[in-house]
């Protein structure tokens, strides 16, 4: 679609498995649209500069920085947020692992870490600690739950292998 005059448009995409549409401003990023149009707060803007990972969403199978990704680029894509991980009341392996290891205090960074954990384990089902640290180096936790987060990733890897 080419639209050089209008600063708004309607986009259609798959959100956590369901087809959806939204009327967006072209200057909105995907995190803003998830919050404003769908009431989803899992992807949240913190640094706004690509550094902290709080705004992480998975778009067409890849983790992206929501705060720097134009919502218009989600048109036609498949978007997964932390809200899409649980199956009804059943939490995903990554979610369970973060709870069981106590890998958070305030929880602000947790959706981003959980989505990145899912991505890492999709790519590499049995990462060692160095691989875990490297993959998650772009996610910041102000509460400093890093040791527990690394444990949570290992636990999630085990749960997924045994599932």
């Amino acid at each position: 679609m080419t639209d050089t005059k209008n600063s708004r448009r309607t986009i259609r995409f798959t959100l956590n498995g369901r087809p959806v549409a939204a009327d967006i401003g072209l200057n909105q990023n995907i995190t803003e649209v998830l919050q404003d149009s769908f009431g989803l707060g899992g992807s949240r803007e913190s640094c706004g500069q690509g550094l902290c990972g709080c705004c992480t969403v998975i778009m067409d199978g890849k983790a992206v920085t929501g705060c720097l990704t134009l919502a218009a680029f989600a048109d036609g894509a498949s978007v997964t947020t932390v809200e899409g991980l649980a199956d009804g009341e059943t939490l995903s392996a990554e979610q369970e692992a973060f709870i069981e290891t106590g890998a958070f205090q305030c929880g602000f960074c947790t959706p981003g870490f959980i989505l990145m954990t899912k991505q890492l384990l999709d790519e590499n089902p049995d990462p060692d600690d160095e691989e875990i640290r490297h993959y998650l180096s772009g996610n910041l936790c102000r509460c400093g739950a890093y040791p527990e987060i690394v444990k949570a990733v290992r636990l999630a890897a085990g749960k997924r292998r045994n599932a």
Partner: peptide
């Protein structure tokens, strides 16, 4: 590339 920013930025 391995130490250029983070995975999410490299993805876009």
């Amino acid at each position: 590339l391995r130490r250029l920013s983070n995975v999410r930025v490299r993805n876009i």
